[in-house]
Design a protein around this nucleic acid. Structure first.
Length: 933
DNA sequence: ACGCTCACG
DNA sequence: GACGTACGTGAGCGTA
């Protein structure tokens, strides 16, 4: 191609290279080259921007010539005029400096001209080139948003803000400075510039400067006629500082006569040389960009290899948490940069912002990502305007990437098993993504790490963890969405408010991950975390998404029946009481029973209120009082109605017709799950009336509900861990464990045993697991305390291993501050060395935790293996109720499912632990949960 | 916001 | 000798 001389019809683009570099540096994480740790984040961003720029079509304004202009050094001729010029400028960051020469190399690799001149600023070179090109009859676009360049705008010269994609002409300049481009330097001379340390006139800003210039025409006239100014202070300022203002003008005036090497012809646009460009990119180890460029150029991408450094670099000191490094991603190219950074790093901290805590209803509002501490981004996709449009529809705010494009771009990363996704309570995000067809793989969860380390010590919410382990107070969500009645959903939060909050969440998650990771192995809970916590995420998420069908018609019918029954009972109660009162108020009831009717039963609790709990009322009823008996009836019905038949209906999902509970993995200290919204782990079963609620939990047509539950799992674990021969033998023989206990304690044969005796033995068996006391047993069995104590003494005599186990457990807890289950789960016992009444509670909790915890571990192990075991069956696991799993299965496969699930459940302790008692699982099936249980 | 009460394992 | 007393949960209601 022959160089044509620059002239009419030519279009020169002048790119402000320094601005590109700084923008790239601040927008991207501090990436380093894998092989040697060279910082290359700014280079990566610079290359991405340059690539985007050279592949941009630019429409009819396509450049014929282009150059990237850099600052050469910090000292320029302006320092001779005014030594303090740009003296306020901080030194560029340590990890940016080595990247300056690399950006020149990058520019040359793209085959774009690269210009810098000793002693001159980039702005002067740009000015000189622009003047030359304009004088030759061509047009010029300066790619920069630097206001100092606006003085150059005019005939044939305009600017392009590369971030906003906005063209800047004389009108835009006038908007900014209040004067035309030709008077910009006058205004700048007066207003000064604190960033560049241009003094200007004290107390005069752009507004006043523009006003003065517009009034007097130009700066020189203004200074000459300064004495005419009416405002005394302003007049004096201009007179006193005339010389300083003139110097300022020289500082801000760009030098069109800056010496230039070469001619404009040399700047003609050239295609990049594929070998040179790809060689450079591969050398920088930019995998994604190398591949992208190779594809576009139709060349083969060179292999990007990055041997890890031979010695691990010292961990850099973490910067304080600060929102300055956060980016709001509004362009696919920027998202591409992040994805490239994630791919390089092999891990990402991620957090979804949504409109609701209910994952079934929540709409995605934005996603935040963090790859290294200090840099995070927020990708808004669902923010809407504060007010609706004319039709009451929420309007998406502009400047957001389309949600489906963002998700499509992130899907490969999220599903890539080679990229670790780090989250805080990732089950939530997993479900959100699952609803968009993305199944996240390779997960790390800081909430679960904290739980594996610190169950028993504190809760595991992010705000608490951040404060406790990072010393950082998070932005309270209430600052964004408010609270109470005026609370808004997250989609109505302004993006500029949401971004720092959301990005901070991702960064904190990342830092917590780095904090907890070494602690897991140090404190020997890696196995518990990896085998008992982490794998629960997708298992529970799938169960929760599946939900269980609940028949609202049945519930409604029950509600009506309960309402009638309650009304009748209320009449009867008011009659018996001799006055009307709120039957649901324990306070009013207590006053009626104990003040008005003077029944026996004293005050209780710190509040001084009378206790009207069920056992108090039962005692009164047993003495023949009708009122307490009716109250007990009323309370039972009231509970069933309010908590179950009424509240349950509100939890039926309108889209699925099913109830989707949420399981909290870290809610219970012992490893048990907790079920919320609604709690499906406390659906009534003990009374006939309550059990009927379970008739409303249905299998879908052609299906059955199947329930499998562990028989006496905690007693079996006790028999194993405390090594109690009599108990173990009973379980091996498959005999009635409570009858055996009674037989051993009281010396009566199992055959033909008095049910009352068995009941007492059963109460003791359970009591032992809880850290029994004579008082507790006496109250439970309603027998004299001395008698209860005598039973316990007998029990321990007969099974001395239990006492030994309890003493050992408490001693271990006192020494270690924690206890462990058979499977290595750690439960902290912070209160164990307390004195006083609290010590008793801590002691009992420490005794119970390894038993309850081991049972929880076992069913978790079963649940984790279950999806694989039932993969080929038309069945889904729906619910867990501590020792029970509920499935929904096509009716033809009921027996297969029971066989498969039972095999998994009964073998769940193995191979980690070989129990010396068998685990036994009972199964039931039916059209509804009442039948199945 | 807190305590009481009660549903479950 | 007194103290408070069975372990682990969640939800709805009344009261402050």
């Amino acid at each position: 191609m022959t160089p044509t001389s620059f002239g009419k019809g030519c279009h020169l683009h002048l790119i402000d290279g320094s601005a590109f570099i700084f923008r790239a540096y601040h927008a991207l994480p501090p990436l380093t080259r894998k092989s040697d740790g060279l910082p290359v984040g700014a280079v990566a961003g610079f290359c991405n921007m340059l690539w985007k720029y050279v592949t941009d079509e630019h429409g009819s304004d396509a450049p014929t010539h282009a150059a990237v202009i850099f600052d050469h050094s910090s000292k320029t001729f302006r320092n001779e005029i005014y030594p303090a010029y740009k003296a306020n400028r901080p030194e560029p960051p340590e990890d940016l400096r080595p990247q300056f020469p690399l950006t020149r190399d990058a520019t040359r690799a793209f085959n774009v001209s690269c210009i810098e001149t000793e002693g001159y600023e980039a702005d002067d070179i740009i000015a000189a080139l622009a003047c030359q090109a304009r004088d030759a009859g061509g047009s010029v676009t300066i790619v920069s948003s630097d206001k100092d360049l606006m003085q150059l705008v005019g005939d044939g010269v305009r600017m392009l803000d590369p971030i906003k994609g906005k063209l800047i002409g004389p009108e835009e300049v006038a908007e900014k400075f209040g004067v035309g481009p030709d008077r910009v330097i006058d205004v700048q001379a007066l207003a000064g510039d604190s960033v560049d340390n241009v003094p200007g006139a004290p107390g005069i800003g752009i507004k006043t400067a523009a006003q003065l210039i517009n009034e007097y025409g130009d700066l020189e006239t203004l200074l000459e006629r300064a004495s005419e100014i009416k405002q005394p202070k302003r007049r004096q300022t201009l007179i006193d500082h005339a010389e300083q203002i003139r110097i300022s003008k020289r500082l801000v005036t760009l030098d069109c006569d800056t010496p230039l090497e070469g001619s404009l012809q040399d700047l003609e646009i050239r295609d990049p040389d594929p070998d040179a460009l790809l060689g450079f990119l591969a050398d920088m180890e930019f995998r994604t960009l190398t591949a992208r460029v190779a594809e576009r150029l139709g060349a083969e991408a060179p292999a990007v290899t990055s041997a890890p450094p031979s010695s691990a670099p010292a961990a850099p000191e973490l910067p304080a948490i600060d929102h300055a490094g956060y980016q709001t991603v509004t362009e696919m190219a920027a998202l591409g940069d992040w994805i490239a950074a994630i791919t390089e790093a092999g891990q990402v901290a991620i957090d979804c912002e949504t409109t609701s805590l209910d994952e079934m209803q929540a709409k995605l509002v934005g996603i935040s990502l963090a790859v290294v501490p200090g840099r995070a981004c927020y990708i808004p996709v669902g923010h809407v305007a504060g007010s609706d449009d004319l039709f009451g529809q929420a309007m998406l705010v502009e400047g957001q990437l389309p949600q489906d494009q963002v998700l499509a771009a992130l899907k490969p990363v999220l599903e890539d098993p080679a990229i670790l996704k780090i989250g805080q309570n990732l089950k939530y995000d997993w479900k959100i993504f699952a609803r968009h067809g993305i199944r996240m793989a390779s997960l790390a969860d800081t909430m679960l790490m904290s739980y594996a380390l610190n169950a028993g010590s504190h809760n595991h919410g992010m705000d608490e963890l951040a404060e406790r382990y990072l010393g950082h107070k998070c932005i309270p969500i209430k600052e964004l969405i408010g609270s109470g009645k005026s609370q808004i959903t997250f989609d109505r939060v302004a993006i500029d408010k949401a971004a720092p909050y959301a990005a901070e969440d991702a960064e904190i998650t990342l830092r917590l991950y780095d904090h907890f990771t070494p602690m897991l192995s140090d404190q020997r809970v890696t196995t518990a975390y990896e085998l008992l916590e982490r794998p629960m995420i997708p298992v529970l998420a799938d169960m929760e998404l599946a939900g269980i069908k609940v028949d609202t018609d049945t519930l409604k019918r029950m509600s009506n029946a309960f309402a009638q029954k309650m009304a009748a009972l209320e009449d009867e109660i008011h009659e018996l009481a001799g006055e009307k009162f709120n039957v649901g108020s324990p306070k009013q009831l207590g006053e009626i029973l104990f003040d008005k009717m003077s029944l026996a039963g004293g005050k209780q609790g710190k509040t001084g209120a009378y206790s009207t709990s069920a056992d108090v009322l039962e005692d009164l009823a047993a003495e023949g009082h009708d009122l307490p008996a009716r109250i007990l009836d009323w309370r039972q019905i009231s509970k069933l109605k309010s908590t179950y038949t009424d509240a349950l209906q509100t939890h039926v999902d309108p889209d699925t017709g099913r109830v989707h509970t949420s399981y909290s993995i870290t809610g219970a200290q012992t490893g048990r799950l907790a079920s919320t919204d609604p709690n499906l782990q406390n659906i009534p079963v003990r009374t006939e009336e309550g059990r009927r609620i379970r008739e409303a939990f249905l299998a879908t047509p052609g299906h059955r509900l199947v329930s499998l539950d562990y028989s006496q799992i905690e007693l079996r674990i006790l028999a194993h861990v405390a090594d109690i021969p009599a108990l173990k033998q009973a379980f091996l023989d498959g005999i009635d464990i409570h009858a055996m206990t009674a037989s051993q304690m009281f010396g009566v044969p199992v055959e033909g045993m008095d049910p009352m005796i068995r009941r007492r033995a059963k109460a003791i068996n359970f009591g032992v697991i809880y850290g029994i006391s004579g008082f507790g047993l006496s109250r439970n069995l309603r027998i004299p305390r001395a008698e209860a104590q005598a039973f316990i003494d007998t029990y321990f005599q007969r099974f001395p291993e239990i006492r030994a186990y309890m003493d050992k457990t408490v001693a271990d807890a006192k020494q270690d501050g924690h206890v462990r289950t058979l499977f290595g789960r750690r439960i902290n016992t912070p209160g164990i060395n307390q004195s006083g009444p609290a010590a008793g509670g801590a002691r009992r909790a420490a005794i119970n935790a390894p038993i309850q915890g081991a049972a929880a571990d076992i069913i978790r192990r079963a649940m984790i293996r279950m999806p694989d075991a039932i993969r080929d069956l038309p069945a889904r696991m729906l619910l867990q109720v501590h020792d029970e799993l509920v499935f929904e299965v096509e009716e033809s496969a009921v027996d297969d499912l029971i066989a498969a699930a039972r095999r998994i459940m009964e073998g769940a302790a193995e191979p980690a632990v070989k129990l010396n008692v068998p685990l036994v699982v009972d199964a039931g099936q039916g059209m509804n949960w009442a039948e199945a249980h």
